[in-house]
Simulated assay, not measured.
Amino acid sequence: MDDIDARLIHALQANGRMPAVELAKVAGVSRAAASQRLERLLLEGSLQIAVLPNRQVDGRQWAAHVLARPSAGAANPVQHLAAHPAVGFLSVASGDFGLVAEIRASDFTTLAAEISAVRENPAIERISASIYFEVRLDRLALNDEMAFVPDQIDRELIALLMHDGRRNYSSLAKALGMSTNAVRNRTLRLIDGKVIHIGALARRRANDHELSLGVGISASGESAPLVTAIESVPQVEFLALSVGTFDIVATVRAASRTEATEAIDAIRSLDSVGSITTWIHLDVVKDLYGPTDSCFS
Rank of each mutant, 00 (worst) to 15 (best):
14 A>W: 06
142 L>K: 09
208 D>L: 12
246 F>E: 08
169 Y>N: 11
196 I>P: 03
11 A>S: 04
291 P>F: 03
186 R>W: 10
87 V>D: 10
120 E>F: 08
28 G>I: 03
140 L>K: 14
208 D>M: 07
234 P>K: 02
65 H>Y: 14
188 L>G: 08
17 R>P: 03
86 A>C: 02
154 D>G: 04
219 A>E: 02
220 S>Y: 03
293 D>H: 14
283 D>M: 05
99 L>F: 03
235 Q>I: 01
231 E>R: 12
174 K>C: 03
253 R>P: 00
122 P>E: 06
12 L>Y: 02
160 L>D: 12
33 A>C: 09
208 D>Q: 13
39 E>A: 07
19 P>V: 10
210 E>S: 14
157 L>E: 14
136 R>E: 12
224 A>P: 06
140 L>P: 08
245 T>P: 01
94 S>T: 10
22 E>D: 03
52 L>C: 15
32 A>Q: 09
222 E>T: 06
137 L>F: 04
296 F>Y: 12
165 G>F: 10
295 C>Y: 10
92 V>K: 07
36 Q>A: 00
153 I>Q: 14
271 D>L: 09
258 T>Q: 14
104 R>H: 09
67 L>D: 11
192 D>K: 15
77 P>S: 04
58 D>C: 08
244 G>D: 01
26 V>P: 01
225 P>S: 09
106 S>Y: 08
104 R>W: 04
278 T>G: 01
3 D>N: 07
219 A>K: 01
131 I>W: 02
61 Q>Y: 06
260 A>K: 02
91 S>P: 08
57 V>D: 04
188 L>Y: 07
157 L>A: 10
185 N>W: 08
31 R>E: 00
23 L>G: 00
268 R>Y: 02
89 F>H: 12
97 F>R: 12
73 G>H: 09
31 R>C: 00
16 G>R: 04
245 T>R: 13
2 D>A: 00
195 V>M: 07
58 D>A: 00
151 D>I: 02
255 A>P: 05
